[in-house]
Computed example of a mutant assay.
Amino acid sequence: MNAVVHSLQGVRSVARGLEWLAPVGDLAIRLWVANVFWRSGLTKIGSWDTTVLLFTHEYSVPLLPPETAALLAVVIELVFPVLLAFGLAGRFSALVLFLFNAAAVVSYPALADAGLRDHTVWGLMLLVPLLHGPGKLSLDALVARRWPAPSR
């Protein structure tokens, strides 16, 4: 019986250590997925003519002219990853990028299996800040500590 109690204490100790690391994990996820979208936005503005051609002939974005869709994509990919990386409006930023990621999959039917796997991983990574918030190492957490919400 003593060995079982000792084992349970060890498990609890490991769990406390993992809880301490959770904010670092939240930050790592935010930075990783933000970097993916940021680099994609930089690629789009780096070759604007090619980007517009892709939105004209490859990507099937409904209801928007190709130039507008390309501009919207660049704005989303350059603004929201920064917000997500800093954890400012973290849930909203994750939601925008999650929906953008889903739209990218739907609007590009020629996406290969490897590309679909990448988009799936990014979508799952975005679910972490979307469902749990950006974590303790975020501007959202700093703002909440500095200016707590009024009690009801």
Rank of each mutant, 00 (worst) to 15 (best):
A94D: 02
S138M: 12
L130F: 13
A144M: 04
G133E: 08
F92G: 08
L88P: 01
P109D: 13
D113R: 06
L116R: 07
S138C: 09
L131P: 04
A73N: 01
R117N: 07
K136V: 15
A89R: 10
V105Y: 08
F92C: 13
M125R: 11
A144G: 03
A94Q: 00
V74T: 03
A73V: 02
V96I: 15
P134T: 14
L97M: 07
V75M: 10
L97F: 06
L111N: 10
A141F: 10
L84F: 01
A94C: 04
L126P: 00
L126C: 05
V82Q: 00
L78Y: 03
L72E: 06
R117S: 07
A144D: 09
L139P: 00
L131I: 11
P109W: 06
L72N: 05
A141E: 09
L97P: 02
I76C: 03
D118W: 10
A94K: 03
L126M: 05
L88E: 04
I76Y: 00
L99Y: 08
V121W: 03
N101K: 06
L131F: 13
A85R: 00
W122Q: 05
H119K: 03
L84E: 00
A112N: 15
L139G: 08
G90T: 06
F80W: 05
L130A: 12
F80V: 05
L72Y: 03
I76F: 04
V79I: 11
V74M: 04
A114Q: 15
V74P: 00
R91H: 05
D140N: 04
M125S: 15
F80E: 02
L131T: 11
V121P: 02
M125Y: 09
K136C: 14
V128E: 07
D113E: 14
P109M: 10
D118S: 12
A89K: 07
E77D: 11
G123V: 13
G133N: 11
L72G: 10
L139E: 07
A144P: 00
G115S: 05
D118R: 14
A144V: 04
G123W: 01
S107M: 10
V143Y: 13
R91K: 09
L139V: 15
D118F: 14
G133R: 12
A104I: 11
V105H: 02
A110N: 08
A112W: 08
P81F: 01
G115P: 01
S107N: 11
K136W: 15
T68N: 12
G90Q: 02
Y108C: 08
A85V: 03
G133W: 05
K136D: 15
A103T: 12
V74N: 00
V106K: 12
T120E: 06
V82D: 02
L131H: 07
V121I: 15
P109V: 15
G90C: 03
F98T: 11
P109G: 12
K136F: 15
V106W: 11
W122P: 00
E77N: 12
A102I: 12
V96K: 02
V96F: 08
L139Q: 06
A104S: 14
A73H: 00
G123D: 03
V105N: 03
V105Q: 06
V82A: 05
A104F: 06
A141H: 08
S138P: 11
L137G: 10
F92K: 03
A104E: 04
T120L: 14
A102K: 08
L71E: 08
A114C: 13
L142P: 00
F92R: 02
L95Y: 03
G135K: 05
P129S: 09
L88S: 06
A103F: 09
T120V: 07
